[in-house]
Design a protein around this nucleic acid. Sequence first.
DNA 1: TCAAAAGTGTTCTTATTACACCCATGG
DNA 2: CCATGGGTGTAATAAGAACACTTTTGA
Lengths: 241, 241
Amino acid sequence: MAEETKFFKTAFSVDNVIFGFDDGDLKVLLIERGEDPYVGMWALPGDLVYPNEDIDSSATRVLKELTGLENVYLEQVKAFGAVERHPLGRVITIAYYSLIKISSNKLKTSSFAKKAKWHSIKQVETLAFDHSEILKASILLLKKSIRNRPIGFELLPPKFTLTQLQHLYEAVLDAELDKRNFRKKILSMGLLEDIDEMQEGVAHRPARLYRFDKQKYETLMAEGFVFELSDSKKLMGTTKQ
Amino acid sequence: MAEETKFFKTAFSVDNVIFGFDDGDLKVLLIERGEDPYVGMWALPGDLVYPNEDIDSSATRVLKELTGLENVYLEQVKAFGAVERHPLGRVITIAYYSLIKISSNKLKTSSFAKKAKWHSIKQVETLAFDHSEILKASILLLKKSIRNRPIGFELLPPKFTLTQLQHLYEAVLDAELDKRNFRKKILSMGLLEDIDEMQEGVAHRPARLYRFDKQKYETLMAEGFVFELSDSKKLMGTTKQ
DNA sequence: TCAAAAGTGTTCTTATTACACCCATGG
DNA sequence: CCATGGGTGTAATAAGAACACTTTTGA
């Protein structure tokens, strides 16, 4: 700690808001702090930026150290730089958010990762540092981004049903969507490939499985196609509450 | 410089993309560098962040030192932190953009400001550091923001004509808009107050003057109103090129 | 009287919304 | 045979797009 305090005079860090989707709920991966400051509280995973490391690489590294995952959707949220945001010194942090498929992920067993746990974003208590504020900003950005870019798929397994996709959107946007309108809209974009497979072992009529066609998206993009879902105030169905 | 080089081992800075609108053109305020590195090149105005200064305050200060203006629209773009972005050391910079009314602004005469000049964004050459990249990201963000928030008014004098407003949108979005559709749309939002004054001294039929009703906007916001202009791919008229 | 920009409505087309029933499976 | 979620179409409404002529002023 004494060592670190020196280092901490002025430093940059990255903090990573790692989103996952499971059990119909949007989740965020948090770490229980094992040391002061804020010992025992939950915090976003992060680290100081190494001297010879780009900030993007730093965020990628944190994610990999924690989850073992690479080639994952990762985007900068913004920098947070209030003077007193870190009690040990002047630390400006750059927040990132990433989207991962929880199912395909076993958390690593490093000491770092051992204290990690998925939290439903509905039930996150107050976090260490200014991390509550960072989380809030990240959720807002995610809500916005998911309507303008086809990133929802990053949170689902490669093969998914339309209902899974709809529930994902509902969780992120915190609103209810109309089933028929949602399907019509999303299928009309032509980005989903019906892979002619069915769900198995469910106690109801099995659903078709789809796959996101990334190549098709890139082709359409080049032609000026714009991914867009209507505003969440009036959505594609009934607004919650 | 030797002094500064020491300081520069690792530091944070802010860079401010100051937009203005004049003569039908979107402009950005740049500074000619008087010292190495990149002496003689144009750069975004910026400064190191003081040890006891929030990053937002730092951006506000840079803006004030340069233009004398306070209470101006200012928003963070994002952080730029490639390892080799600054030749003298590791400097992570936080980019901001601000919107000012050029007309109401006489640049200050500090040595800092003496080298400042408005450049049409259509004619900006390669900038110092990674500032070309920062400018590009800022313009993209501005294009997006101007469609989702009523910030265009920040670039116009308090009283303006609908044609001025339309030209502003056309300059920012880099597209042509249909006059009738634009007016219908913007007036239907109910955010413009017709102040019953007319343009004077123009060699054609004088236009009505309007004022942006900020209070009205806040009231509507609270009721769930969403400011939104349709996507620039299909806009409110004919797309350029 | 000319040039320049202001101002104004309607029709067509497309996208969004609201809404209810039958189907396939496992237990 | 029941419970569960899968799957489907249509009509009404709202929003966006296309489009041309008259008006007012100063020079």
